[in-house]
Structures are given as C-alpha cells and as structure tokens.
Simulated scan of single mutants.
Amino acid sequence: MAKLILTHEVSGLGEAGDIVEVKDGYARNFLMPRGLATPWTKGGQKQIDQIRKARKAREIASVEEARSARDSLQSKPVVVAVRAGAGGRLFGSVTTGEIADAVKAAGGPSVDKRKIEVGNPIKSLGEHRVQVRLHPEVQANVTVQVVEA
C-alpha cells in the first residue's frame, strides 16, 4: 500500500489535500503519472496546508450559497454552441471546460470544470443532463442544451 497526498480531486477517492492509502500499482501507474498525487512525507504537511487553503478560496463557502447557486443552475438550461455534422453528430464531444464556460456566460456561478460530472460523453445535439458538485453536501442536476454554432 502506498500513502499519497492528493493534489487534485479524484472522484471516489478524495479531494485535494487528502491523505489516502491506495495500492502500489494504482499510485505508480495512474495517480502519480497524471499529477493527481504525490508521495506522502513528513514535510508534506506544509504542502497539504497550502492545497487546503487554495481549495477553500475557490470553494463556495456555505451550504446556503451552494443551494441558491443550485437553484439558479437548475432553473434554466445552459446553452453550449458547437460545430456539428450531418445528423446532429458533433466533431468530438462537449468538454467539462466548455460547460463551465457556458454556465458562467449564462450568469451562473464560477464552476470548476473538475466539479462537473458527465455520465456519457456528449456527442450529439439536443438536451443532456450533467451533475455539478457545488459543495460536499450540494449537487445540481443541470440541463445542457447543445446547439449548432
């Protein structure tokens, strides 16, 4: 088992700044090459404190703020304009970064693209559902309307 400090949020494992124990292969072959984690050391506590401080600055502070942001996001669909080919098929897929930009352009809160979870890749025009984690206790189900640019 390897003891690591997460530098980014990993779905199902933890958030940035968390200390986790994972199997050696998962750490060596997935987490560390992608820059999602670093080995745990005694001097790493300073790094953990910096990560947590940065995360707090980005995060929505209270549950009430997160709930109001959720209500505003769920009230209207977010429109993403992309290039499409014949039959409404996209050239590629809609990324979480594009969705985050569209949320901000629609007047919604600034959302980190890593907090957006897309079940199946969005590769066609129309309405799609995505989940946005605004706070550890609050999630928003957002309708993304993909239109041709």
Rank of each mutant, 00 (worst) to 15 (best):
I5Y: 13
L6C: 06
L6M: 10
T7G: 05
V10D: 10
S11L: 14
G14P: 08
E15P: 04
A16R: 15
G17H: 05
D18G: 13
I19K: 07
V22P: 01
V22L: 10
K23I: 00
K23P: 03
D24C: 09
A27Y: 04
R28Y: 13
N29R: 14
L31I: 01
L31N: 03
L31E: 12
R34T: 01
G35P: 10
G43P: 02
G43C: 01
G44F: 04
G44D: 11
G44E: 14
K46Q: 12
K46W: 07
K46P: 01
Q47C: 04
Q47W: 10
D49C: 08
I51E: 00
R52C: 02
R55S: 13
A57Y: 03
R58H: 04
E59S: 13
I60F: 11
V63M: 13
E64S: 14
E65Q: 15
A66Y: 09
R67Y: 00
A69S: 13
A69C: 09
A69W: 09
R70H: 04
D71Q: 14
S72F: 05
Q74V: 09
S75W: 09
S75V: 01
K76P: 09
P77I: 08
V78W: 09
V80M: 05
R83L: 09
R83I: 04
G87F: 06
G87D: 10
G88M: 07
G88W: 08
L90Y: 02
L90C: 03
G92D: 11
S93G: 09
V94L: 05
T95H: 05
T95Y: 10
G97R: 08
A100W: 11
A100S: 14
D101F: 07
D101G: 11
A102C: 02
V103C: 06
K104C: 02
A105E: 11
A106V: 02
A106L: 03
P109D: 07
P109K: 12
P109V: 00
S110A: 14
V111S: 12
D112P: 02
R114Y: 05
K115M: 12
I116K: 04
V118T: 10
V118I: 15
G119L: 10
N120P: 06
I122P: 05
L125F: 06
R129D: 00
V132A: 03
V132W: 07
V132I: 15
R133L: 13
R133F: 12
L134W: 12
Q139N: 13
Q139W: 14
A140M: 07
N141H: 13
V142Y: 06
T143Y: 08
V144R: 04
Q145V: 01
Q145M: 11
V146D: 15
V146Q: 13
E148D: 10
A149R: 14
